[in-house]
């Protein structure tokens, strides 16, 4: 999108120039709307669960910005001539059930005929203009909490290859269909400095967006990063999605390792996630309390994965 000129407005709190999770526009002094959209091709075979995952994924940006999603619209591409319409019905049912769980209303949508299935939603939420949480407000000494384990990209590739067990498929399906709502509600009770959600750019890519221009660096503790155990195994077998290599080529120069780290764990740092967890930056003291609360609320994979450091600037240092 570089080189294009985007009109702006004094009420535009977050627009395209900042590459954040969603757009935020002030309506009154007490109210802003958050708008976001996401859709993709099926990531699991079960249409109902694909619908749920797509909806959880679409709402995630609003949660990451501290907002409350309110309404949503379906975006559908479907090969009507090749596939029974029941499949589409199941996808939309899955999406609708997930919206219901999130207390979000489905208010419309649009569908086209296409060679392959695509489904997603555009979603709108509310937030107080002064309580918008963006990516870009790291502070020295902050701790970083990640709320879901990494590895969905690698496991999805293993699913495509017919190598993943039913057990693994079920586990990551549930993980991807889990709303970031509970984590976001807990987060909002603490003075959070910055937050984003982990999606296609992988952990390092999203950390980079928080980091660039901050004047700080990030030190991660490799052993604390939550990962889906099976993903390590599939990574060794070569089940790494093309997107992970793209992410690596793009951001590798920011990353330095203090000690040699298992290469399979390194792959997970770049693995593109679908409906990944929140990545939350807040003071050490607040992080201890938030982590305890997340665990208590059943978000068991949550972990403090690193901290914001003053040196080296704009680098991601990875220690054991």
């Amino acid at each position: 999108m570089r080189g294009l000129d985007f009109p702006t407005d004094p009420n535009l709190i977050v627009g395209l120039d900042r590459a954040d999770d969603a757009g935020v526009y002030r309506i009154t002094d007490n109210l802003a709307i958050i708008q976001t959209v996401d859709f993709f091709t099926p990531i699991v075979d079960d249409p109902y669960w694909f619908g749920q995952i797509a909806a959880a994924n679409a709402l995630s940006d609003i949660y990451a910005m501290g907002g409350i999603p309110k309404t949503a619209m379906n975006i559908v591409a479907f090969p009507l001539k090749k596939m029974p319409i029941d499949i589409l019905r199941r996808i939309i049912e899955g999406g609708l059930d997930k919206l219901r769980e999130a207390d979000v209303l489905l208010v419309g949508g649009h569908s086209i005929e296409d060679d392959e299935i695509k489904y997603g939603l555009s979603a709108t939420g509310f937030v107080h203009p002064e309580q918008v949480i963006t990516k870009r407000n790291l502070r020295a000494g902050d701790r970083l909490i990640l709320t879901k384990p990494l590895g969905t990209g690698i496991i999805s590739t293993a699913i495509k290859g017919g190598l993943a067990s039913q057990e693994t498929i079920q586990a990551i399906t549930r993980l991807m269909a889990t709303l970031n709502r509970t984590a976001a509600e807990a987060m909002k009770r603490y003075p959070v400095h910055a937050c984003t959600d982990i999606t296609g750019y992988g952990l390092v890519g999203h950390l980079a967006e928080m980091l660039i221009g901050s004047g700080f660096g990030i030190r991660l503790v490799a052993g604390n990063i939550p990962i889906i155990p099976e993903a390590v195994e599939y990574a060794a077998m070569g089940m790494i999605p093309g997107g992970a290599y793209k992410n690596k080529n793009f951001r590798e120069s920011l990353v330095n390792f203090e000690t040699p780290i298992d290469p399979r764990i390194q792959d997970l740092l770049f693995d593109p996630q679908t409906s990944g967890g929140l990545l939350i930056s807040l003071s050490e003291q607040a992080s201890t309390k938030l982590l305890a609360e997340l665990k208590e609320k059943g978000i068991e994979a949550s972990a403090v994965i690193g901290e914001v450091v003053t040196q080296p600037v704009e680098e991601i240092l990875i220690g054991p």
């Binding site: 990574a235 070569g238 790494i240 992970a244 290599y245």
Partner: peptide, 15 residues
């Protein structure tokens, strides 16, 4: 014919 496949096939063979 692509880099991702090259890395993945190498890994698979090493494994």
């Amino acid at each position: 014919d692509n880099e991702a496949a090259q890395h993945n096939v190498s890994r698979f063979l090493v494994h």
